[in-house]
Design a protein around this nucleic acid. Structure first.
Lengths: 174, 174
DNA sequence: TACTATGTTTAGTAATTACTAAACGCACAG
DNA sequence: CTGTGCGTTTAGTAATTACTAAACATAGTA
């Protein structure tokens, strides 16, 4: 039907691509998500290829990444060997799984390193005065990261409670 | 004094570098911040060069970027031509200015594009049925972005109220 | 005026990341 | 067992980004 995509879709895809890059994901990932999100029915890998202009390989890997992040779902039709993908439409759910993903891996490791530095500092060999200073600084940073961690856990907790909760938060902070 | 940096500092710097990259900033930026953050006194550009191992040019541009983000402050001593830099230690303040910075520029533009798509969709020429579907999807995304926007405004509002507020938020979401 | 100590800009390089094209593997159909 | 339709992997390329080295600009100093 829409062999040449309508301009509006193009713009939308472009917009999501930008947003994707902005948050540190590949541009193509945003494009793929956009295509799926605007499709009333699940799409096969090749349909995504056509609509995004990416190659099969790229789509294959990116779509898998999206699935790992919980932004798309993979399904299949009986008596059809193709895989089909559709976009998650509950964005809070998505955020939740993205944060979960991000919390593991590198970030945690880096954070552990900082924590470790603190521990070792306390038994370190520097002058008492300088040491006290360093300990305090590292501790403050540590505390901050913990707060961030809590905050993201809080977001995770939002579950599918939706927007009303955000409003609640806003009202408290008013 | 510490010509060869103690291992603990090295580790800390390395840790912050990783964290920096993880959040989409250059590695060197994290390193510079780490050095400043661990210094009891403001440092000159050349001192930063020594401690990070970067070149003068890199430090010059990155430190300026950090200043724009509100993560470091530039100062100068009387009768001393050097500039001196020190780290912001109120991280909530930092987050606030980072978010402010991010909200302008690209992200806003992309968001505007999506908004625009919605408007044009409503007067578009597609089949009524398909159009209704698209409008609904774009609208939902729009709403989500607004919520995110609100949330980040909320964080911005935290001002220097500190951690207790995060706890408050947590308690609501319990 | 020229000299020195600073920070900035620039042009090029290195490193990283996203992507392409094509080979591959696997399951099903004949 | 062979061929066909699919997704995956891989090896190489393009594009982006972070950085270096060095020229440059500026302001103070002799």
């Amino acid at each position: 039907m829409t062999n040449a995509l309508p301009q509006i879709k193009r713009d939308f895809i472009e917009g999501l691509s930008q947003i994707s890059r902005f948050w540190g994901f590949p541009k193509g990932m945003g494009a793929i998500f956009a295509v799926l999100y605007l499709s009333p029915a699940p799409l096969s890998l090749d349909e995504i290829v056509v609509q995004t202009g990416l190659t099969k390989g790229a789509v294959s890997t990116q779509v898998r990444a999206l699935a790992r992040l919980g932004l798309v779902y993979r399904s299949s039709k009986l008596a059809d060997r193709k895989d089909y993908y559709e976009a998650e439409t509950d964005f809070y759910k998505s955020i939740r799984s993205i944060l979960k993903e991000r919390q593991n891996t590198e970030f945690d490791r880096a954070l552990a390193a900082v924590k470790d530095a603190l521990v070792r500092l306390e038994s370190g060999a520097t002058h008492a005065e300088e040491r006290a200073f360093l300990v305090e600084r590292v501790r403050a940073l540590q505390e901050f990261f913990d707060a961030i961690d809590n905050l993201s856990r809080a977001v995770v907790k939002l579950e599918s409670l939706g927007i009303s909760n955000v409003q609640k938060i806003l009202s408290i902070l008013k």
